[in-house]
């Protein structure tokens, strides 16, 4: 993960896909596709019944993945057997992780060579107070979210905590699958945020739907993450065409 950011010459492309969607065992096929295209790393969603910060597209893929029988045991099995060497960041809500057992989850993540975590409902202060020491024992970074409304002091805190991964900049204040990011009013704020983050890389996500919006949003940052737009293409069987634009 660190090497990826260190050696980058242009904004990195990360694709979000939901584990177990559209078929339970589709991960290897998608990873091979990502390997053959200009994808730099994967954000792999652990499906959850009640994804509070997600819009209809990711909700639907989660529901289908759960109906397909996806769970953390199966997911770690698939990760252990994967052929691709693309870095994988696991994205998931806290509840399934806590019930699985946080330490067991971290141990299996370590074994499966997971590069980082994004846990949207793990709030920063709470993390520091209750969970940080457990995460740190396994040395896989948690990548914290910030939004254009996050205060400067909190952005710096997020950057410090995410220094071995990246800060996830949420482009606008809305759930996933919203409008195109990167309008001009916010670009200035993005740059401020980038500078507040210092050496910690900044990836932008939420609302990036194509090459145009990717270039607009990610241009002065370390890269961008595409989720709902990719999943919509995947649903139609047009994922290869979608990735060809990058």
């Amino acid at each position: 993960m660190k090497a990826l950011f260190k050696n980058q010459s242009k904004p990195l492309l990360s694709i979000f896909t939901t584990a177990g969607y559209p078929k339970i065992d589709d991960l290897d096929r998608q990873l091979a596709l990502f390997d053959s295209k200009n994808v730099n790393f994967i954000e792999l969603g652990i499906p959850f019944s009640d994804p509070m910060a997600d819009g209809p597209t990711i909700q639907e893929t989660s529901t289908i993945a759960l109906q397909n029988g996806m769970n953390l045991d199966i997911l770690f099995g698939q990760l252990n057997e994967r052929k691709s060497t693309l870095p994988i960041v696991l994205m998931g809500y806290l509840n399934p992780i806590l019930l699985f057992g946080l330490e067991r989850f971290l141990e299996l993540s370590k074994k499966a060579n997971v590069s980082g975590f994004i846990i949207p409902d793990l709030e920063i202060d709470l993390y520091q107070e209750r969970y940080k020491s457990i995460f740190e024992a396994f040395e896989i970074p948690v990548c914290f979210l910030v939004t254009p409304r996050t205060t400067d002091a909190r952005i710096q805190k997020a950057a410090e905590l995410s220094k071995n991964g990246f800060v996830y900049l949420v482009s606008t204040n809305s759930i996933t699958g919203g409008e195109v990011a990167g309008n001009n009013k916010l670009s200035a704020r993005y740059e401020e945020i980038k500078s507040l983050c210092g050496a910690t890389p900044v990836m932008i996500g939420f609302g990036i739907s194509d090459r145009h919006s990717f270039n607009g949003a990610a241009k002065n940052l370390n890269g961008g993450i595409i989720g709902s737009a990719y999943l919509k293409a995947l649903k139609k069987g047009e994922e290869t065409e979608f990735l060809n634009q990058f």
Binding site: M52, A53, L94, P120, D121, L122, E123, I124, D125, L126, E129, R130, F144, L145, V146, T147, R149, T150, T151, R154, A158, V170, N173, S174, I175
Partner: peptide, 18 residues
């Protein structure tokens, strides 16, 4: 942090924090 002993708190996405 809003805990009654073990239970409570605010497990919220950053989007809701402000």
């Amino acid at each position: 942090l809003g805990f009654y002993g073990e239970f409570g708190g605010a497990y919220i996405p950053e989007l809701l924090y402000p």
